[in-house]
Simulated scan of single mutants.
Amino acid sequence: MPTLVWDYVGEYENEREDILDAVDTVFRSGRLILGESVRGFETEFAAYHGIGHCVGVDNGTNAVKLALQAIGVGPGDEVITVSNTAAPTVLAIDGVGARPVFVDIDPETYLMDTAQVAAAITERTRCLLPVHLYGQCVDLAPLQRLAEQHGLKVLEDCAQAHGARRHGRLAGTTGDAGAFSFYPTKVLGAYGDAGAVVTADDTVEENLRRLRYYGMEERYYVVETPGHNARLDEVHAEILRRKLGRLDDYIAARRAVARRYEEGLGDTGLLLPGPAEGNDHVYYVYVVRHPQRDAVMEALRGHDFHFNISYPWPVHTMTGFAHLGYGTGDFPETESAADEIFSLPMYPTLDPGLQDKVISTLRDILARG
Score class of each variant (00 low, 15 high):
Asn279Val: 04
Gly269Pro: 09
Leu272Pro: 05
Tyr283His: 13
Glu262Asn: 03
Ser310Lys: 00
Arg293Met: 08
Thr268Leu: 08
Asn279Phe: 04
Tyr311Pro: 01
Asp267Ile: 02
Tyr311Ile: 09
His316Arg: 04
Gly264Ala: 07
Arg260His: 12
Gly269Glu: 14
Leu271Ile: 12
Arg255His: 11
Asp294Glu: 07
Thr317Asn: 08
Tyr311Val: 10
Gly264Cys: 06
Gly327Glu: 12
Asp304Thr: 00
Pro291Asn: 03
Gly274Leu: 01
Arg293Phe: 02
Phe321Gln: 04
Val287Trp: 02
Val288Ala: 00
Arg259Cys: 07
Arg254Tyr: 15
Gly274Tyr: 10
Pro273Arg: 14
Thr328Asp: 06
Ala295Pro: 01
Ser310Leu: 00
Glu263His: 13
Thr268Lys: 08
Glu263Thr: 14
Thr317Glu: 11
Val288Thr: 07
Asp267Tyr: 04
Arg255Asp: 09
Thr319Met: 06
His323Met: 02
Ala276Met: 07
Gly325Lys: 09
Gly266Gln: 12
Glu263Gln: 15
Arg289Pro: 00
Leu271Val: 15
His323Val: 03
His316Gln: 05
Pro314Phe: 13
Pro291Asp: 04
Ala258Ile: 12
Val288Asn: 01
Ser310Val: 02
Pro273Val: 11
Arg254Lys: 14
Gly302Pro: 04
Tyr283Ala: 08
Gly278Leu: 14
Asp304Arg: 02
Gly325Trp: 10
Ala256Ser: 15
Asp330Ser: 10
Gly320Arg: 13
His316Glu: 04
Val296Thr: 05
Val282Phe: 10
Arg254Ile: 06
Val288Gln: 01
Tyr284Phe: 14
Arg259His: 14
Ile309Tyr: 03
Phe331Arg: 04
Arg255Glu: 14
Tyr326Val: 05
Ser310Gln: 00
Tyr326Thr: 05
Tyr284Trp: 06
Pro312Tyr: 11
Val282Ala: 07
Phe305Ser: 01
Arg301Phe: 00
Gln292Val: 00
Gly325Gln: 08
Arg289Glu: 15
Val287Asn: 12
Ala322Cys: 03
Gln292Trp: 01
Gly269Gln: 14
Val288Tyr: 02
Phe331Ile: 05
Met297Gly: 01
Glu262Thr: 06
Thr268His: 09
Gly274Ser: 13
Ala299Lys: 10
Tyr286Cys: 06
Pro275Tyr: 13
Ala276Asn: 05
Leu270Glu: 10
Gly274Cys: 03
Gly278Ala: 12
Met297Trp: 01
Val287Ser: 15
Thr328Gly: 03
Asp294Gln: 05
Asp280Trp: 12
Ser310Thr: 01
Arg255Lys: 15
Pro291Val: 03
Ala295His: 09
Phe321Met: 07
Leu300Asp: 06
Pro312Thr: 08
Asp280Ser: 11
Tyr311Gly: 00
Gly269Leu: 14
Ala299Trp: 02
Gly269Val: 13
Asp280His: 13
Leu300His: 07
Glu277Pro: 05
Tyr283Ile: 08
Tyr261Val: 10
Ala295Asp: 14
Asp304Leu: 00
Pro273Trp: 14
Met318Arg: 15
Leu270Ala: 09
Thr319Phe: 06
Asp330Val: 08
Gln292Arg: 15
Leu272Phe: 14
Gly274Trp: 09
Arg254Cys: 06
Asp267Met: 03
Thr317Phe: 04
Gly278Tyr: 12
Asp294Ile: 00
Val285Thr: 15
Phe331Asn: 04
